[in-house]
Design a protein around this nucleic acid. Structure first.
Lengths: 147, 147
DNA sequence: CACCAGCTACCCACTTTTACCCACGATACG
DNA sequence: CGTATCGTGGGTAAAAGTGGGTAGCTGGTG
């Protein structure tokens, strides 16, 4: 089971390639076969799933009803941008332009491991995102991890 | 089960390494495999968990809902700073620059064992923290440990 | 149908960071 | 008083991160 954690300030080269941090690579199962699926995430960031984790997600979508218009919308929005990408010799994935634009990514990115997936952010947008949180970390922790 | 206690004034070398006090090492279970997870704590200190204790914490986070925005915020904030580090030959862990900055740590640290985790403080900040407590130790004890 | 532009997938090369090793003085202990 | 453990400092080889070249494929165009 993969369990990503940590944040990493990395760069994107002019070919749209992003290195997958070595610390995160360790947790990718061999079943993923060095393949990742990149798609839109929440709050203008990108989600990157190892192939085996993506397959689990896909399995849960499969149970949605194609006759329900809200379900249809969700499936389209999620799958529209989903792109498969395999690591190159230097352990990088290449991100399509459309996804880079979606997340407003230019040269620098913040990569965050969040358990079963990896998030890719424009560093400035992430900073703003943190500021928009009305509650402090301590306050949220108190209610989320209450004993 | 680990049960850390005691405080220790130690130094950080210019490579960001901190020794884990021998007294605390004794209580780390072999399951942790000499590996620790360091992350942000409350009140500007760092929390250090032996790997087995961290896994318990992670398990409780895993049950949070990724579609709940407060839960997302909490998971990101917690995991963003989380870093795995294995003891070197001299029983030290190395702390990433970002975490040292977060806790305002420079050369000297105060290491405190608090049951299942270890805290790392800038000594001056810890002293100030104690001063900000409006209630005395005795008063708090009365309400916390009421019989 | 030939040609060109753009993209992709491999290479190769360079710089920086990390992990591992060794070493020394101080302290605790029998 | 000798010995083992502990805390601290530093050197170096390996790994990680970054940048770029080129050949091959694809799709559009004159």
């Amino acid at each position: 089971m993969s369990s990503f954690k940590g944040s990493y300030a990395y760069s994107v080269d002019n070919k749209g390639r992003i290195n997958i941090p070595a610390r995160l690579r360790k947790y990718v199962s061999t079943e993923a076969n060095d393949t990742f699926v990149i798609t839109r995430g929440y709050e203008q960031c990108l989600f990157v799933y190892p192939l085996d984790e993506w397959n689990k997600l896909e399995e849960s979508i499969r149970h949605l009803s194609p006759t329900n218009s809200r379900h249809r919308f969700f499936m389209r929005a999620l799958l529209e941008r989903a792109t498969e990408s395999q690591l190159d010799g230097q352990f990088r994935i290449s991100i399509p332009k459309e996804l880079l634009q979606f997340a407003h990514i230019e040269n620098e990115v913040l990569i965050i491991g969040v358990l079963e997936h990896i998030e890719i952010w424009n560093p400035g947008i992430y900073e703003q995102y943190l500021k928009t949180q009305s509650e402090s970390y301590e306050t949220v922790a108190q209610t989320v991890l209450q004993k």
